[in-house]
């Protein structure tokens, strides 16, 4: 039995955040620990020092997100997938790690989409308040509102939306052993209509595919 400090048992206390730990999810080499309003990532000594060079390699806990289990995006992506994987038995072809990896990717991209959406709305609100009374001199409006960086913000939003859809394709890949790359849902639609014709899943993609181009 090893007597290296890195191999000894550990306990940790998560002071930040509200209430108790609600759920723990595997996250690659790490473990994600959720409170209602926080997410922490715990890295084991083996993750921190995979080559085992340091007998004193520490456990590392980091606060990775201000969004916890109470956030609807977190709950309806990563935590939903995690719950299913714990609740049921799945076919051997299902790659659980990749399911969670894709779900985490979706979570991060949708959170980013929402952050940018809020940024865009806040900026428009700010401009509208600033230009509430247009300065009209004769028939000249001397200062008309401008959203500087609108194209850039819209581009960032659409990029994150695309990334979310790419990760979503990864969920299908992980559950069915497929290799769809990018958000090419017309290919996924065709595959489903060929392989799972008439199922709710095939219809779901058929209906939604035109909206995600």
């Amino acid at each position: 039995m090893s007597d290296r400090p890195r191999d000894s048992a550990m306990s940790l206390e998560l002071a930040e955040g509200t209430g108790p730990i609600l759920v723990m999810c595997p996250a690659g080499d790490a473990l994600e620990i959720y409170k209602v309003d926080r997410c922490f990532e715990v890295l084991s000594p083996d993750s921190v020092d995979p080559k085992q060079t340091d007998p004193n390699a520490p456990w590392i806990v980091r606060h990775v997100s201000g969004f916890g289990a109470g956030n609807d995006i977190v709950a309806r992506t990563v935590l939903q997938a995690n719950a299913f994987l714990k609740e049921a038995t799945f076919k051997d072809t299902v790659d659980r790690e990749k399911v969670m990896e894709a779900a985490r990717g979706c979570r991060n991209s949708i959170l980013e989409c929402r952050r940018i959406a809020e940024e865009i709305n806040a900026e428009i609100d700010r401009i509208v308040r600033k230009y509430r009374f247009l300065n009209l001199r004769g028939n000249v409006i001397t200062s008309f509102p401008v959203y500087e960086g609108l194209h850039e913000a819209a581009g960032r939003f659409l990029l994150s939306a695309k990334q979310a859809l790419q990760h979503a394709a990864g969920i299908i890949n992980a559950f069915f052993g497929q290799v769809f790359t990018g958000p090419h849902y017309h290919k996924i639609r065709d595959w489903l209509n060929k392989t799972f014709s008439g199922t709710g899943f095939a219809k779901f993609i058929e209906v939604n595919e035109p909206r995600i181009k």
């Binding site: 992506t77 299913f84 072809t93 299902v94 979310a164 799972f196």
Partner: peptide, 28 residues
Amino acid sequence: IAKDVVAIVEFILDFVEGLIVLCAGMQT
């Protein structure tokens, strides 16, 4: 744009959740 970006976030979230539910339901 202000309204659409909010609606798109909700749509993508619904879509991803739907995918997880449907994929899981078919592979048990």
